[in-house]
């Protein structure tokens, strides 16, 4: 039998994979947690997890623009803009299975994109620098003492403090693109975030986060920030 893949089939497959990964991403940690929890754990006297973490966060991120308001997931590679971030984070209301967190970070977002037609290809890189305040009101964790995975939901507000736009036509060299920089003119950004990470001895040492902007970065086109952020904390 000859297999043929149409664009529709690929789109359907992509959507299915998204759902699959999302479910897998959310359920699997709980499933694993259930598997390794001892039957009598509930009888063990609860330990207090009342110490709030306060520390420094840093890491890398892959960022891109969503043009159709979709759940675009940027990944490291040619299709997204690599960047970095750094800031401080503080846990609040730390309980055994729950806590909240606020973060203040400097980070770069943006996109590395290629616009094409049948004659020309224009590469455009827009790097937007933000000062971002993130609030994660819901961090759920199984409550292990040493290695404690978690998932977190929250939102962010970011204020743009700079922008660098460059473009390149065909085999030409990169040149500053002030017109594009001027057109990406919205300075405030806000959105939601979904994270998964691990506490190690109450410190969130590692985290992978997906951030989706709800506000367009340009008043003239509906493009929104999408980022996958990998963080380490100390």
């Amino acid at each position: 039998m000859k297999l043929q893949f149409s664009k529709t089939n690929i789109d359907q497959l992509t959507s299915s994979m998204k759902i699959l990964f999302t479910v897998f991403f959310l359920v699997t940690p709980l499933f694993i947690c259930a598997q390794i929890t001892r039957q009598d754990s509930i009888s063990i006297s609860k330990k207090k997890h009342s110490v709030n973490y306060l520390g420094f966060r840093f890491g890398g991120l892959a960022s891109s623009f969503s043009h159709k308001n979709d759940l675009l997931i940027p990944a490291p590679g040619k299709k997204s803009l690599p960047a970095w971030h750094a800031g401080v984070a503080m846990d609040l209301f730390t309980k055994t299975h729950y806590n909240a967190r606020v973060e203040l970070s400097y980070l770069n977002k943006g996109a590395k994109e290629t616009f094409t037609n049948d004659q020309i290809s224009i590469q455009s890189t827009n790097r937007l620098q933000y000062l971002q305040l993130t609030a994660l009101p819901l961090i759920i964790k199984p409550g292990y003492r040493k290695i404690n995975p978690y998932i977190a939901f929250g939102g962010y507000y970011a204020r743009r403090i700079g922008i660098k736009s460059k473009s390149k036509t065909g085999q030409g060299s990169w040149e500053n693109d002030p017109v594009t920089a001027e057109n990406l003119n919205v300075k405030n950004d806000f959105g939601y975030s979904v994270s998964a990470g691990v506490y190690f001895w109450k410190r969130p040492v590692f985290e992978l986060r997906y951030e989706a902007g709800l506000s367009s970065v340009s008043s003239s086109s509906g493009i929104k920030n999408r980022s996958v952020i990998l963080s380490f904390s100390i």
């Binding site: 690929i10 789109d11 992509t14 994979m17 998204k18 990964f21 897998f24 991403f25 892959a62 043009h67 675009l72 997931i73 940027p74 990944a75 490291p76 590679g77 299709k79 997204s80 994109e113 290629t114 616009f115 094409t116 037609n117 020309i120 224009i122 455009s124 827009n126 736009s165 473009s167 693109d177 017109v179 594009t180 057109n183 990406l184 992978l208 340009s218 086109s221 493009i223 996958v228 990998l230």
Partner: peptide
């Protein structure tokens, strides 16, 4: 794995008409 798999997503090519400039 999730992080890198997400990069397999097919990105629609952008038209020059949509270039921000």
């Amino acid at each position: 794995y999730l992080c890198f798999l997400s990069g397999c997503e097919k990105v629609e090519p952008l038209a020059t008409d949509d270039f921000y400039r």
